[in-house]
Design a protein around this nucleic acid. Structure first.
Length: 259
DNA sequence: ACTACGTCCTGCGAGC
DNA sequence: TGCTCGCAGGACGTAG
């Protein structure tokens, strides 16, 4: 469930703690979190692209991390169960917990080609995003619009809750296969707005996601659609409905979001 | 090329 | 009370 706002929130905290530190040890406890020994290397950058975290490791490459569904990055892990990767530095240790092991950690060595999924990522949400360009990608194709929002190619970093929230805000039916340019532009603007707001509130802490210090985000209390099935739509009072689109649980308002 | 679907994995809550 | 079962979903592989 960690989506762009959640990853960005931990990125900011990691940047404060890890930038300029020296790695003293790294421990890998599972194949999905396998990284060569980085002892002595300096962390020179803490970046994010979509839902991926990228730690620049001086003279070695980039440490690529994805939180998957249940991934947690913790500065001091109280619960050691499901900790698959540890990165110790001269300032402290970063623990990667991931009960369901959908996440991963790997090192992109200097000279390695950039993985395809990273290359295919669309624009980052934000003020510099070209709404027209993203909308042009979004209107292409025959799949349900929600599937196209989730495939990362129009805008990077969207997951299930951002998709449901944006579709509701833009009044587009999640199963709609033919969206207009006008609808697509509404969607992209909604994404921008929701991403910004969610980051401001430290993201959504619904089940597993927590901050580096174990703290929780607050945006789960401001969700207008996702997870509110059976409850009234804030716009029209109609009961929100849950269906499956693109294999994902999808909540929407049958009155506001018509095909 | 695009689209659809199965797979990975564990915790949790509903229902009996 | 204790069990089983279904569901949660990001990315990827494969099939059509």
């Amino acid at each position: 469930m960690p989506e762009l706002p959640e990853v960005e929130t931990v990125r900011r905290q990691m940047e404060n703690l890890l930038l300029g530190t020296i790695i003293t040890k790294n421990t890998c406890r599972h194949a999905r979190y396998q990284v060569p020994d980085l002892t002595g290397c300096v962390i020179t950058g803490v970046r994010r692209r979509g839902k991926y975290l990228l730690l620049d490791i001086q003279d070695r490459g980039v440490l690529l991390m994805h939180l998957g569904m249940t991934g947690q990055l913790l500065w001091n892990a109280e619960i050691k169960q499901h900790v698959h990767f540890e990165l110790s530095t001269n300032k402290g240790t970063l623990y990667f917990r991931d009960p369901r092991r959908f996440g991963f950690v790997r090192l992109l060595e200097q000279g390695d080609s950039v993985p395809r999924t990273l290359r295919r990522l669309g624009q980052e949400p934000g003020e510099e995003l070209s709404v027209k360009k993203a909308a042009a990608i979004l209107i292409k194709g025959q799949s349900p619009i929600k599937a196209r929002l989730l495939d990362q190619r129009a805008v990077a970093g969207i997951g299930n809750y951002l998709a449901d929230e944006a579709l509701h805000a833009a009044k587009v039916h999640p199963a709609c296969r033919a969206v207009t340019t006008r609808q697509a532009m509404r969607l992209v603007r909604a994404i921008n707005k929701i991403v910004m707001l969610s980051i401001e509130h430290g993201g959504v802490s619904e089940r597993d996601y927590v901050h580096l210090d174990g703290g929780r985000g607050g945006y789960q209390n401001l969700l207008r659609c996702y997870g509110r099935n059976g409850k009234p739509c804030f716009n029209c009072g109609t009961e929100l409905t849950k269906i499956v689109v693109a294999g994902r649980g999808t909540t929407f308002c049958p009155k506001c979001q018509k095909i």
